[in-house]
């Protein structure tokens, strides 16, 4: 198992990866409270970016509505906790099938009726919007007035109920990012991964090579949706409040995809690097401006825009393939 996972990785890549992991493991012992919240944000975006990348980067299906799966995960776990006192990990077991079903439904509609490309993307936006409007009127989750989780000062970290300090969320997310990274690598090396790449490259050719494209596109959507719902559960228990207007909003979906695009769509490390670059730079920009006494609302969004523009023009494959060449990691893409 371990042998297969590290297969094709140069010793150098492996050492760098382990080094990064060690730094990330040690970070909370050195980081300030503020820096820790930034790192949590980075890990969150690295994780959802990885999940989104399965659909777009591997199977070539553009989703612009991943906020839907985050929101479904968040609302399911939060509502179960608030109403029935069911803990987030049990909630996750229910959130995953709900998000996976939603993904399967959208995928079925699109792939069965041959909705592809931009039209598929629009369909994913539409369903996220349905959810946003729908949850605004859903009394069970307190509609537009928002669903709140009980909050207290926690002296102890309760991992089972995800009640505690940021450092606990940091480690939970770190484990999730590592697991997603390893899982995606295993998927890419499997038969399914090859089929996805074939579909991404040329769906017509994939069909004439005898690949059941419908089935493998469905698998991509379901895995991606299920993975994303876990991020939603963490989101709910970290922020402790959920508003449909916030959770399902299209800008949430866009935030999710920026990381992998900047980092490198279809690469394994791109979503992680992209999250570091974008969130890291955006936060330091906000802090920097704040430090010199300038407060411009929306500066972060403008910065995202400039970043995206720069990456698309200068590094259309993303930052990671470029960094990889610089580091001399000769492993073949992706």
């Amino acid at each position: 198992m371990l042998g297969r996972l590290t297969e094709g990785l140069s010793a150098r890549t492996l050492i760098l990866l382990l080094l990064l992991l060690a730094v990330m493991l040690a970070a909370p012992f050195f980081a300030s409270d503020y820096l820790l919240t930034v790192l949590i944000l980075i890990l969150y975006f690295a994780y959802v970016g990885q999940a989104w990348n399965i659909m777009m980067g591997f199977a070539g299906q553009l989703s612009l509505g991943h906020a839907l799966y985050v929101g479904l995960g968040a609302y399911t776990a939060a509502a179960l906790y608030v109403h029935f006192g069911i803990g987030p990990w049990i909630g996750l077991l229910i959130a995953i099938p709900i998000a996976a079903l939603a993904g399967a439904f959208i995928g079925y509609l699109a792939f069965r009726f041959k909705v592809g490309g931009v039209y598929f993307a629009i369909l994913t936006i539409a369903f996220a919007e349905f959810a946003r409007v729908g949850f605004d009127h859903l009394a069970f989750t307190k509609g537009s007035s928002g669903l709140f989780l009980p909050v207290a000062q926690y002296s102890k970290n309760d991992l089972w109920h995800l009640r505690g300090q940021p450092v606990m969320f940091y480690y939970v997310l770190l484990v999730a990012v590592v697991a997603a990274f390893i899982g995606c690598r295993a998927l890419l090396q499997s038969r399914i991964g090859y089929f996805w790449l074939a579909i991404r490259e040329d769906e017509e050719a994939a069909r004439s090579a005898g690949i059941d494209t419908f089935r493998y596109k469905m698998i991509a959507v379901v895995i991606s949706a299920a993975m994303t719902s876990f991020a939603g559960v963490i989101y709910a228990f970290y922020y402790n409040n959920l508003f449909p207007e916030q959770v399902f909003h299209i800008s949430r979906s866009i935030e999710i995809i920026l990381g992998p695009i900047v980092g490198g769509v279809g690469t394994l490390f791109g979503p992680i690097l992209g999250a570091f670059v974008l969130t890291g730079l955006a936060e330091s920009l906000t802090e920097g401006l704040h430090a010199i006494g300038i407060d411009i609302p929306g500066a972060k969004q403008v910065f995202y825009g400039i970043c995206l523009l720069f990456v698309i023009m200068a590094l259309p494959d993303g930052v990671w393939p470029w960094v990889k060449r610089r580091l001399g990691l000769a492993e073949r893409a992706p």
Partner: peptide
């Protein structure tokens, strides 16, 4: 219709997946 970014060996492997 070949898969342009995949290698020749991978392209051929794809044909043997059925």
């Amino acid at each position: 219709q070949v898969f342009p970014t995949l290698t020749i060996a991978e392209n051929l492997a794809m044909g043997a997946m059925i």
